[in-house]
């Protein structure tokens, strides 16, 4: 299932959410995936552990993060969640902090992660106009309109 369909089908969306640290921002995204049965609760721990060891390797561009861990970190099936933050939080990446859009990604294997899941996430975020819309979306209806207006994004 593609990114857009997944978000709406499993309702893994939280807009204008509040987080007081990068850890709690990551947790908002992984909690949605746990509720949807996409990952085990330990997926959160896997992301935090890797971040502490390697730094925030999943920061994509100013304001945007794609938290994820390896498939063996507790992925049940491939899926995504979208979190936007009312107040951005710092992840410790000087080029790109603070972050207010998080697309948490879980892929069932490395091939799926590299060839499909990452490509879908970055294709959505590779447009300033689209990112601005995402940041201002207040509810699911706003979000639906944004996705419906995207003719070049499947």
């Amino acid at each position: 299932m593609n990114l857009k369909d997944y978000l709406f089908e499993y309702n893994t969306i939280s807009l204008q959410a509040e987080a007081n640290s990068w850890q709690s921002a990551v947790k908002l995204g992984t909690d949605l995936l746990v509720e949807a049965g996409t990952v085990e609760p330990r997926y959160y721990d896997a992301i935090i552990e890797s971040t502490l060891k390697l730094g925030p390797y999943y920061i994509l561009a100013p304001g945007m993060a794609m938290p994820h861990a390896r498939p063996e970190g507790g992925v049940i099936r491939t899926g995504y969640s979208l979190v936007t933050l009312k107040t951005p939080v710092a992840f410790g990446d000087v080029d790109n902090d603070p972050i207010d859009i998080l697309i948490t990604m879980a892929a069932k294997d490395t091939e799926t992660q590299n060839k499909s899941a990452i490509v879908q996430v970055v294709s959505l975020l590779d447009s300033e106009e689209r990112v601005q819309w995402l940041k201002t979306a207040k509810n699911q209806e706003d979000l639906k309109r944004i996705f419906e207006s995207l003719t070049d994004f499947e």
Partner: peptide, 8 residues
Amino acid sequence: LLKLMKVG
């Protein structure tokens, strides 16, 4: 990084 990941 967005372009790099998009191309893969």
